[in-house]
């Protein structure tokens, strides 16, 4: 069966896998953003604390994903749970690092103004620092998202959702007529999804960057 016929016949399944792939990545990145930004906000002032947070998240990123998934199975079983946890763990480094860099990058004169005007620490963080650091934080989120699309394929091996299933079923049917079609569909699907998200990030960046920073 040629590839276009294969696509036509399996379109609905592929679409569902793609949606699940995107969903698990999006969910994980949202969670990781919440956690990573919080860690960044709590540690940016102290070089030691933020350095430790970055070192730990870098070490976690060094662990091969199949190994991390294996270690999560006894705790969380198979499926979405270990997948999401592993993906969250892997996306922390770019987000934490960029949050720290973004918060550190805010002009000290701006912080002094804010303090001099009587903004509390929390008000300064919410109204001044986070908006100013946002474009850099968002870049970290974007980097993480790109990374997760590839990693998420491996989660299929622990019964995770997404296009990894298509790839693995190609491998399982090695030698059969559709093996190549499956592998190509799965791989290309992941690449296309990643591209689409990257484009979405360009738009998101435009929409969420405060206008005063773009002029």
């Amino acid at each position: 069966m040629d590839f276009s016929r294969y696509l036509e016949r399996r379109w609905d399944d592929l679409l569902e896998q793609a949606v699940q792939h995107a969903a698990v990545v999006a969910l994980s990145v949202l969670l990781a953003t919440a956690i990573g930004v919080l860690v960044g906000v709590l540690t940016w002032r102290s070089a030691r604390a933020s350095g430790a947070a970055i070192s730990v998240s870098a070490a976690l990123l060094t662990i091969p994903s199949l190994a991390l998934l294996a270690l999560l199975i006894p705790l969380l079983g198979l499926g979405w749970a270990p997948t999401v946890v592993a993906l969250v763990v892997y996306s922390l480094l770019p987000i934490i690092r960029n949050t720290v860099a973004g918060l550190r990058g805010v002009d000290p004169a701006i912080l002094e103004s804010a303090r001099g005007m009587g903004l509390t620490g929390r008000q300064t963080m919410w109204r001044i620092q986070l908006p100013l650091a946002w474009p850099i934080i968002l870049t970290g989120v974007r980097v993480s998202t790109q990374m997760l699309f590839a990693i998420a394929t491996i989660a299929a091996y622990v019964a995770g959702p997404g296009l990894g299933n298509e790839i693995l079923s190609g491998l399982a049917g090695l030698g059969s007529a559709n093996a190549l079609n499956k592998a190509v569909a799965g791989t290309a699907g992941v690449v296309l999804l990643a591209l689409a998200f990257d484009l979405a990030f360009v738009g998101l960046r435009r929409v969420t960057t405060p206008r005063g920073l773009r002029v």
Binding site: Q146, F149, A150, I151, T153, I154, G164, I167, L168, G170, L171, L174, A179, L180, A183, V184, G186, T187, V190, V191, A194, L195
Partner: peptide
């Protein structure tokens, strides 16, 4: 951008 797992499987099928 291509996932390593995908490339691995593709190459081994080919």
């Amino acid at each position: 951008a291509a996932p390593a797992l995908g490339v691995l499987v593709l190459l081994s099928i080919l």
